[in-house]
Structure formats: structure tokens, C-alpha cells
Computed example of a mutant assay.
Amino acid sequence: MKETIEQVTEQAHDAAIATRVQVDEAREALKRRMRRARRQGGATIVEYALLVGLIAVAAITAIIALGEGVSELFQDIADEIPEVDTPS
């Protein structure tokens, strides 16, 4: 009987150690995933900032390049519209 108790105690101890190892491995895997997610999130923010900057530069360039032509076009259209006399 004494051997059986010692065997069960040893098996329980081994199971506890195995469980502790699994918990430690799971904790390390979670830490790796969190680090990877942080790095990817940071890269995404930088990418979005670059994209917004490029869109702003493109919009400003288009407005400068087309602004005068569009203004002249609207002025020509306005000149072609007949004036309407409004009754007083």
C-alpha cells in the first residue's frame, strides 16, 4: 500500500510539472502573438499615414493644376447665361 501511495504521489507530481510546462509554453506563445500584433499594428499606422499624405499631395497638385482651367470654364458658362430682368 505504501508503494501505491508513493506511486500515485509521484504521478501527481509529474502531472503537475507537465501542466506547469504547458502553461509556461502557452504563456510564451501568447506573448509572441501579442508582440507580433503590436508590430503589425504599428506598421499599419505608418502605412495609413503615408497613404493619407500621398492622397493630400495628389489632391493639392490636382487643384493647383486644374484650378485655373476650371475657374475659366465656370466663368465662360456664367457669361453665356443670359441675365434675367427681375420685376421691381
Rank of each mutant, 00 (worst) to 15 (best):
I60L: 07
R35F: 07
R38P: 03
V21C: 04
A15N: 11
E25H: 10
I77N: 03
E83S: 08
I63R: 03
I63F: 03
I5G: 00
T9E: 03
V84Q: 05
D76V: 04
G42T: 13
E3K: 10
A43G: 10
I55F: 07
R27Y: 15
A12V: 10
Q11W: 10
I55K: 05
E80Q: 01
M34Q: 14
I64M: 04
L30R: 12
R27A: 14
D14C: 07
I5D: 11
R38M: 12
A18C: 10
V70H: 03
R20S: 11
Q75A: 03
V52H: 07
I45K: 13
P87G: 04
A26S: 11
I55Y: 06
D24T: 14
F74V: 07
I77Y: 02
A49R: 14
A59Q: 06
E3P: 03
L30A: 15
M34R: 07
E25F: 04
R36L: 04
A12T: 15
R20I: 05
A15G: 10
T44C: 09
D14K: 04
M34Y: 02
R39H: 15
E10L: 11
A56T: 09
R38S: 06
A29C: 12
S88R: 09
E10A: 14
T4M: 04
Y48M: 13
V23F: 09
E6I: 07
A58N: 09
I5C: 05
I64D: 00
Q75G: 00
A26N: 07
I55H: 01
T9W: 04
E68V: 00
A78I: 02
F74A: 05
S88D: 07
I45A: 10
G67H: 08
V21N: 10
I63M: 03
R27Q: 15
L51D: 15
A37L: 14
T61N: 02
Q7S: 12
I81W: 01
E28M: 15
M1T: 09
Q40N: 13
I64Q: 02
V57A: 14
I45N: 12
A37N: 13
Q7M: 09
E47R: 12
K31P: 09
T86I: 09
P87Q: 09
A37D: 09
T86N: 06
G69D: 06
T61P: 01
A16N: 11
E83R: 05
A49M: 13
I64K: 00
V23E: 09
T9H: 05
T19D: 10
A62Y: 01
L30Y: 12
Y48Q: 13
A56R: 14
V70L: 05
V46D: 13
A62W: 02
E28Q: 15
L66W: 00
L51S: 11
A56L: 13
L54C: 08
V21R: 09
I17D: 04
E10R: 12
T44Y: 09
P82L: 03
D85R: 06
E6Y: 07
T9I: 05
G41A: 15
I17N: 08
